[in-house]
Simulated scan of single mutants.
Amino acid sequence: MPNDEQVHLAAEGFRLHADPTRIKILWAPPQGESSVACLADLVGAAPTAVSQHLAKLRLAGLVRGRREGTFVYYSAADVHVQALLAEALFHADHTDRDLPDHARGDLLPHTGPATQPAT
């Protein structure tokens, strides 16, 4: 059983993922670093809105920013963010298309083979 701090952090991560614009924002940085203006174009939102979303995602440790002059370039904080998002989108695709469930050993998109949990 996870401890209370782990549960709290996981719930906070899910809460921050629970916004369509943030999902789009999180999907773009794993493809490479992106500026606020580029992300705004990609997700179809105003740069100010994207900047506010990025501030929350950065504080939660889901994205990182790298300053270069007056610009900040954002990327996913680590591979776990990308894997969680890929799994959520994979699940959504299967739910949307009413596809069968997969066994734990099947290949997952973007993440490679699923691993068995430690016992």
Rank of each mutant, 00 (worst) to 15 (best):
P2K: 15
P2D: 10
H8F: 14
L9M: 08
A10L: 12
A11T: 07
L16I: 03
H17S: 07
A18W: 05
A18E: 05
D19W: 01
D19Y: 01
T21N: 01
R22E: 01
R22P: 09
I23P: 01
K24A: 05
L26S: 07
L26V: 13
A28K: 12
A28C: 14
P29F: 02
Q31V: 10
G32R: 11
G32C: 09
A37S: 14
L39N: 10
A40H: 04
L42P: 03
G44M: 05
G44F: 02
A45F: 00
A46Q: 10
A49T: 15
V50W: 03
S51Q: 13
S51G: 08
H53V: 01
H53Q: 10
H53T: 01
H53R: 15
K56Q: 10
R58T: 07
G61D: 03
G61I: 04
G61Q: 06
G61H: 05
G65E: 04
G65R: 06
A76P: 13
V79D: 12
H80R: 14
H80A: 09
L85E: 04
A86N: 05
L89I: 09
F90Y: 10
D93T: 15
D96Y: 06
D98M: 07
P100F: 02
D101K: 15
H102E: 11
R104V: 08
D106L: 04
L107I: 14
L108A: 12
P109A: 09
T111I: 14
A114G: 15
T119I: 06
